[in-house]
């Protein structure tokens, strides 16, 4: 088991380096000079520009800059951005609300996705199954922002159940609608995955054996169908946490939430490359960490992996 974790950790390293390098390259090899653009129309004096370049290591070769950046990430000291505010502070302000949103979305998609998927899979071909399937197709077909409008118009404006936008310092209630919208597409995928997996498991030989033992229908579903079916679903949910945080860019825009998405957008526009790369790197790290957790969970769910 320890070796299993160790091996997984080792595999993570090249992925981390590769992904951050990719992002770093994408941002820093862009044409144009952010420093030259700083002083507006007239530009800053050459000496000041040089000083700024030196401060941000912009004169160094690409790989050296990358190493400085990695060092900054691990010491959590990335210096100030062009406006003088520490990059870490900007990010620390942005992340909590996005994280909260993503976690709420995960909970929503897990509970409803697995719940509906399980019922649909157990009653494959029945009315409930077909209804749920049509809805899941719709959820996948509609872009998140369209879903957001629909929710705003109906749940917010017409019915008045939930606040239309979240704004600054949102509370649980005002985050509920954004979280639902954010969860929408993934919910549909989880539902369909669970449904397929459950429908496949109930025809498995070992489930028939469990029934032949004399177990009741509830016991068979709970002990033999659900747990076995969840293994592929768990993988999906884990991989999804990172996607949700990135996907919240759209949701945050619609609901006026000042999180990672808004910060990232502003940073791109202002050419705050360090902030952009840091946010992306953190999202990559979140993705990697979530996947590691999933792998461990996987090992808990499936003994074949635990002892492999």
């Amino acid at each position: 088991m320890l070796w299993y974790i160790g091996r997984r950790l080792l595999q993570v390293i090249p992925v981390f380096i590769g992904a951050t390098l990719l992002v770093y390259g994408m941002v820093f090899l862009r044409p144009g000079d952010p420093v030259a653009a700083l002083g507006g129309e007239r530009g800053l004096p050459e000496a000041v520009q040089e000083a700024i370049r030196a401060q941000f290591h912009l004169n160094e070769p690409f790989f050296v800059q990358y190493l400085y950046f990695l060092k900054g990430i691990f010491t959590w000291d990335l210096g100030p951005d062009f406006t003088g505010q520490p990059v870490t502070e900007t990010i620390a302000n942005a992340f909590p609300v996005t994280f909260e949103l993503a976690v709420m979305a995960i909970v929503i998609e897990t509970v409803f996705g697995i719940g509906f998927g399980l019922i649909a899979g157990l009653r494959k071909g029945k009315v409930f199954d077909s209804t749920v399937l049509v809805w899941s197709l719709l959820l996948i077909a509609l872009p998140t922002f369209v879903l957001g409008f629909v929710a705003q118009i109906f749940l917010g404006v017409k019915l008045g159940w939930l606040p239309v936008t979240a704004g600054r310092d949102p509370n649980f209630e005002s985050l509920l609608m954004p979280a639902m919208v954010l969860a929408g597409t993934s919910l549909a995928y989880i539902l369909r995955l669970t449904r397929t997996s459950v429908a496949e498991t109930i025809t498995a030989d070992h489930v028939r054996t469990a029934r032949a033992k004399g177990l009741s229908r509830g016991q068979v579903t709970q002990r033999h169908v659900l747990r076995n079916s969840l293994i592929p679903v768990v993988t999906f949910i884990g991989a999804d946490l990172g996607n949700l945080m990135a996907g919240s860019i759209v949701t945050e825009g619609i609901f006026n939430i000042n999180g990672v998405g808004g910060t990232l957008f502003q940073s791109i526009v202002r050419g705050e490359n360090v902030t952009v790369v840091t946010i992306t790197t953190i999202l990559v790290l979140v993705y990697i960490a979530a996947n590691l957790i999933v792998d461990l969970l996987y090992a808990v769910l499936d003994p074949r992996i635990r002892y492999a």
């Binding site: 981390f16 590769g18 992904a19 996607n243 993705y287």
Partner: peptide
């Protein structure tokens, strides 16, 4: 496989936004 993992680890939307915002 590792290469696939690397590209998979970068959030799709984020990467698309970053690249597209760079294109003139």
């Amino acid at each position: 496989s590792r290469l696939t993992d690397i590209f998979f680890a970068v959030p799709f939307f984020l990467a698309a936004i970053v690249i597209l915002s760079l294109l003139p």
